[in-house]
Design a protein around this nucleic acid. Structure first.
Lengths: 293, 293
DNA sequence: TAAAAATACTCCATAGGTATTTTAT
DNA sequence: ATAAAATACCTATGGAGTATTTTTA
């Protein structure tokens, strides 16, 4: 008979690749964990772990099953927090993930409002790129994430919060310059973007569509702020989400809107379907929309 | 600490709404089950079951959690059968669901081929309408279903097997009649369909699109065979999946193809993502495609 | 040979069984 | 009054700890 305990121990092995460390992680002794893993292997009729000298390795089956075990344990953990669902939204601990191209602009306005409206909420904020957020949400390390939609994860539920327009940031070009820009006009420009891995980079590139603007391979900054300084000093142009305009704008760059239809990205929330975070998400979306003004 | 045992007992309560019967279902005594349910309620900090004289009722939380518990237990059961994944596809027990508008035409050809190619396979066939198949697949009562896609269930994985053309079945109208029919021409016809609940009925109606043909409310047969007899006797026309043409055709009806683009429905397989039935599904699709000829 | 996993054995927590009481209609 | 769930109490399974042996690089 498979037990949750066995699955928990297996995931510890998957994380540590070491029986002793896995046992410590589970607050049990190594023989106790060894026995449970053996029982699990017997129940499944498959070898899950290759015992080796330096470190242990999971077999193919072991990898697959550990992956499913993570999902099952996350679902059970969600069950445990389900009690909260009956109570007020946004109360108690909430682990919130948020992407770097939103966090610095949204949080300063949203956090005070959140704390005012939901004093019982204990937030833990994690800022990193979409891919990591998605993985951590799936593994149950986060409860809710703020990212650009869609995420294409059938095990997540999502809720759109608002659309964020893309603006062109460039050195001022005087009164003769067009008040609106066509994406095609980017072809001849020198485009500065965030480094690989940032979804904002991918979104900016998709605005360009089939165009291949003059990309600086050498660049690839890790913050929008850096990119904007480069723009201000004449190194090129960039696409700036409108949300960042207030913070990142300066008198040394002008921000120009695209011609219709203006390219946007959809910012929203995502959480595991198996979790009971729907009410929290809806409440949070309200706050975010207000914070955006 | 939540255990799988507790979840299993809770689902038994959900099914029987009776502690004694639930206990029998789990092969334990009533006090044992009562205690586990109480422990679960304590762990979750919520009342799950309303104890009443006649029968017990689940609270709202209880219903929600029982639903999630079903999913978790199905995922664990899938884990247990994962061992099979390493072995040959289509071996051992497989519970296969199939919709009524496909079963009688596909199974007579597919089953002999299946048994010939996969002698180790032990099939249990369940024939019912899509909605019931989907529910039973989700609850872990079935392993694989054959139905018209898409199913719009993010917890299922699907694989298309083939497309099935719709034909118009009507009384012969002599050599002058059009050799191809436009859907718009259905508007003036008396359309006979299966009763409510059959996906074939919905699909036929969607072929008509915004048209509102002359529908017999009084009719609504429960088998295609009955519908075809009505057609043969001049009661109206119907849409027949090409797959059924060979079996259901007769010299008293003519089968006419639609004009391009011919309306079709996609027939395919679905299984729980958490199950390890992908290899089985791919193997089965091959057999189905051959059986169709 | 040395680190790490498996085995041996003991103990105790807890699930389950039987008998009984409490509850609700 | 009675069916059904809860409680009391006992038993036994099995998970965990300590000590030790086996494995393998």
């Amino acid at each position: 008979m498979i037990t949750l305990r066995q699955l928990r121990y297996l995931t510890a092995i998957a994380e540590t690749r070491h029986f002793g460390k896995a046992a410590k992680l589970c607050h049990v002794t190594q023989p106790a964990l060894s026995m449970q893993i053996q029982d699990l292997e017997t129940s499944l009729g498959t070898q899950l772990v290759e015992r080796r000298r330096g470190q242990v390795a999971l077999t193919q089956s072991g990898t697959d099953i550990a992956e499913k075990a993570f999902a099952i344990l996350a679902a059970v953990a969600d069950l445990e927090s389900h009690g909260r669902a009956g109570r007020a939204a946004l109360a108690g601990p909430l682990r919130l993930g948020i992407i770097p191209s939103i966090a610095p602009y949204l949080l300063p306005r949203a956090l005070p409002a959140l704390h005012r409206r939901y004093p019982a909420l204990t937030l833990r904020i994690r800022e990193t790129q979409t891919k990591a957020l998605v993985d951590e949400l799936a593994h149950g390390d986060l409860d809710l994430i703020v990212a650009a939609l869609p995420l294409d994860r059938p095990d997540f539920e999502t809720l759109a919060a608002f659309e964020d327009r893309f603006l062109v940031a460039r050195k001022p070009r005087g009164p003769d310059a067009a008040k609106r820009i066509d994406p095609a006009a980017l072809e001849s420009e020198h485009l500065l973007l965030l480094e690989e891995g940032h979804c904002l980079r991918d979104q900016a590139l998709s605005v360009c569509g089939t165009l291949s603007p003059n990309l600086s391979k050498a660049f690839g900054a890790s913050s929008l702020s850096t990119v904007m300084h480069l723009v201000a000093n004449g190194y090129g142009i960039t696409l700036l989400p409108e949300m960042a305009a207030e913070t990142e704008g300066s008198d040394k760059v002008e921000l120009v809107r695209f011609s219709e239809p203006e390219p946007v990205r959809t910012i929203g929330l995502a959480w595991r379907r198996s979790s009971a975070r729907g009410a929290d998400a809806r409440a949070l979306v309200d706050v975010l929309q207000e914070a955006r003004g």
